[in-house]
């Protein structure tokens, strides 16, 4: 047994001698230089994500402020006329805001019951095999590019709606709402389904134990317990609909007027930017006005997603 000082313990017991303690040159270099560099990159990437949100906000704000230096903020926020190329131009955002509101409200009215209903079917009623098929179909829907749906809206849905409702044009708010509802379904279904599946098994078992049918359990126990998650699904669905651009640009008729009916051509915030950006001169009032519209969009979706995230967090608890 070793009899001298504590330092010797290592050399006596470790078969490969004390040099095994000393990392090799490359290990030391890697640990002292390589790893701090990699870890700095990792931190920087995290920072970049925050920076992007800041930058997006900053750029929108900067160009919006350029507008408000020449065009009063109040007139932008409360003006009811969007006439960017008349003289003098009018940049009232209200018609666009209402356009977005109309289209979104209808789309959500249509897709929430459908989405939550089918989420209930998929998570609670469908046998496993059918469930997988349905989920893949929903995933397929999620991956169809919006421009394709817009195209179908033009050549198929708009004429159908025109004939059904006897309209002068099928390019109207309802066409957009229907397509947007269709597009928002995957978001609403998948998040609602997660919420329903996440309800603890014990809740169900307790209800079955009291003699409730599967439907009673689903309706009175599972659905209320999943309400936070379903609300989050609805919020995210709204965010998706408000932000969607191509479909509304292609099928809503693009009339920047105060909408009075969903069956009338109208124009949303997103479509305004997409449709007019190409025609503006860089640095003109009109150009800056489009950034102000972008800022309004940013603010709306920021708020919606913030709330949705709160619901999601609550659902997880």
């Amino acid at each position: 047994m070793p009899e001298n000082s504590h330092e010797s313990v290592a050399s006596h017991t470790v078969p490969h001698g004390p040099e095994a303690d000393r990392p090799t040159f490359w290990t030391r270099t890697r640990r002292r230089i390589g790893e701090p560099v990699v870890e700095a990159c990792i931190r920087l990437s995290g920072l970049a994500v925050v920076a992007f949100v800041f930058l997006i906000f900053l750029f929108l704000l900067k160009d919006s402020l350029s507008l408000f230096r020449e065009y009063p903020l109040g007139q932008f926020l409360f003006g009811t006329q969007w006439l960017p190329i008349s003289d003098p131009p009018q940049f009232g955002v209200v018609p666009l805001l209402l356009g977005s509101l109309y289209v979104t409200a209808w789309a959500i009215l249509i897709c929430v019951p459908l989405g939550v209903g089918s989420a209930m079917f998929i998570s609670e009623v469908a046998p496993k095999h059918l469930k997988n098929v349905l989920k893949s179909l929903i995933e397929i829907l999620a991956s169809i590019p919006s421009v394709v749906l817009g195209f179908l809206g033009i050549i198929w849905l708009a004429p159908v709606l025109r004939n059904t409702f006897g309209l002068s044009t099928g390019m109207c708010g309802l066409t957009g709402s229907l397509l947007l509802a269709f597009m928002a379904l995957p978001t609403i279904i998948s998040i609602s389904e997660d919420a329903l599946t996440g309800v603890p098994r014990t809740y169900r078992e307790a209800a079955y134990g009291l003699g409730a049918t599967r439907w009673q359990t689903l309706w009175r126990i599972v659905l209320p317990s999943a309400s936070s998650g379903i609300l989050a699904a609805v919020m995210l669905g709204i965010g998706r609909v408000v932000g969607e651009t191509m479909v509304v640009l292609m099928v809503t008729g693009n009339a920047p007027v105060m909408p009075r009916s969903i069956l009338q051509p109208l124009r949303t915030l997103t479509a305004t930017i997409a449709g007019e950006m190409g025609e503006t001169v860089g640095g003109s009032e009109h150009y800056f006005a489009l950034f102000a519209v972008g800022l309004v969009l940013f603010a709306i979706t920021f708020a919606i997603n913030f709330v949705a995230d709160l619901f999601l967090r609550r659902a997880r608890k």
């Binding site: 949100v53 940013f298 997603n305 913030f306």
Partner: peptide
């Protein structure tokens, strides 16, 4: 969370 919610057209502007 907020990047995922920003409308694609706003990305275009940015």
């Amino acid at each position: 969370v907020n990047l995922s919610g920003i409308p694609s057209i706003v990305y275009g502007l940015f």
